[in-house]
């Protein structure tokens, strides 16, 4: 017998329990203002959060963030990024890079879903948003629209499944990279971004 058949048959022969499928879990009800809940929870994960009135404010906000961190005035956009179409002249001196970001670079991402319960960004891998870009840079700046903020992880899975074929990877990101592996003391920036800035864009 193959290993597969032997394992499956061992499971079938020994089984005595017949546990019922539990009823669907109802997570704690979301707060009345989902955007506020999302922003609050994201800040708890050590993300920096700003609310912008319009997508056209993104270039200036990016330039500000980089200046505030004394970082080089350069932002990495993946090929086919929807942000390439923005008017970047509103942020003079800022250069756009298309190559993969290094561990001290900054990268910009459009995030299709957010989770209010935990302040989490959800990134299904796609052509315009390579999964590794959420882990390579030193700073990730993530843009999310208020309408894409959903109450719970379950809501996000339902939306991704509705949209058709599943991606190869779905990355849930809550705050910058961290480790407690030395003396159980929190340090940011273990392998992934040392900082995460979230720009929430309000609907017109």
């Amino acid at each position: 017998m193959s290993a597969r058949d032997e394992i499956l048959s061992a499971i079938r022969t020994r089984r005595v329990k017949n546990a019922p499928r539990p009823a669907r879990y109802a997570p704690p009800p979301p707060e009345s203002d989902l955007v506020k809940q999302f922003a609050d929870r994201a800040r708890r994960t050590a993300a920096e959060v700003q609310i912008l009135n319009d997508l056209s404010d993104v270039p200036a906000a990016v330039a500000d963030i980089l200046r505030g961190k004394n970082m080089e005035a350069a932002i990495h956009l993946p090929p086919h990024s929807p942000f390439a179409a923005l008017d970047w002249k509103t942020a003079p001196g800022l250069s756009l890079e298309s190559k993969s970001p290094g561990p001290d670079d900054a990268a910009l991402a459009l995030v299709p879903f957010g989770i209010a319960e935990t302040g989490t960004l959800v990134n299904p891998a796609r052509d315009s948003a390579p999964a590794s870009w959420h882990f390579r840079p030193g700073l990730e700046i993530a843009v999310i629209h208020t309408r894409d903020i959903l109450p719970h992880m379950e809501n996000v899975f339902a939306r991704i499944k509705q949209s058709g074929a599943l991606p190869h990877t779905i990355n849930f990101v809550s705050g910058p990279s961290r480790t407690g592996d030395i003396e159980q003391t929190l340090e940011l920036g273990a392998h992934g971004p040392k900082a995460l800035a979230i720009l929430i864009v309000e609907e017109a």
Binding site: S132, N171, S174, G192
Partner: peptide
């Protein structure tokens, strides 16, 4: 929640940049 939760569903398709 941990900083990262990753749902891994398969290999990348031919036109994708990574994975």
């Amino acid at each position: 929640i941990s900083s990262y939760v990753t749902v891994m569903l398969g290999p990348r398709n031919a036109k994708e940049a990574d994975g």
